[in-house]
Design a protein around this nucleic acid. Structure first.
Lengths: 126, 126
DNA sequence: GCAATTGTACTACATATGTAATCCAAAATA
DNA sequence: TATTTTGGATTACATATGTAGTACAATTGC
């Protein structure tokens, strides 16, 4: 039962790239390129993030002809759950429903979205 | 338009104490005592947190006969909103609905809770 | 009035994080 | 083959954060 490491904001961006192509590991350069559009990080910055993620065992790599191909060791799902729980605990004292209520009151949802959420709720009553 | 400062995990605990008694500012000792039950921080630790919060203008204090009485400068609501948005942006790319869907599928909600959520959704369609 | 206490002001120090730059060896190129 | 380029390893450095400790001045108890 592996526990998910804490992934920082900047690291999370890198993970998103790797998760998006979990089937085919990415080279550092591919990650760097993927992030060029969303961030203005220098290549060295991305490499540092990759190294840190490898250190904390969030990712690993295989060596293909002297270039590393990185891939995630933890699933997006696990990490999302973990971060969400931390968030809930911190901000809402761990209570799920108050958060939902708060969100629902705040957020502008389209009629379709509301319908979708209601149908999910319907399913849960069965 | 004051922007909310970033409040760290440990600082958040302190803020919760102050928010709980927004009407009556707390002395450092009161905060320390309130936190004794939830944490095992030494008094000095809490004082450091109070100082940092004051530095980042999340709180301020008035001096009552050489003892400081601390009070929040930012509302819990503001901060919750801010942290929630950061969280959403980081984890769900800013999209509110996917998160909700995810949560609703995961969480075990009681029939009453489901009913309450549905009624909130109903209100929104009007 | 002098000593002990206490509240505040600084100082400390390791780890995390954002954001890279430098060094070095292997590969590609001229 | 000598040189430039490039990818990885190591180092850098400021700010944030967790978690206090020390110094000092005013207050309070003898």
């Amino acid at each position: 039962m592996k526990s998910v490491p804490h992934i920082s904001d900047a690291e999370w961006e890198v993970m998103k790239v790797l998760w998006a192509r979990a089937k085919t590991p990415c080279t550092a350069n591919e990650v760097i390129e993927a992030l060029e559009h969303q961030t203005d990080w220098k290549p060295k910055t991305v490499r540092t993030l990759l190294n840190r993620l490898a250190q904390k065992q969030a990712i690993s790599y295989s060596q293909e002809n002297r270039v590393y191909a990185y891939f995630p060791l933890v699933s997006e799902d696990e990490c999302v759950r973990y971060e969400t729980e931390s968030f809930l605990k911190r901000i809402y004292g761990g209570a799920f429903k108050p958060m939902l209520v708060n969100f629902l009151k705040e957020e502008k949802l389209s009629p379709e979205e509301i319908k979708e959420l209601k149908s999910i709720l319907d399913d849960k009553t069965k």
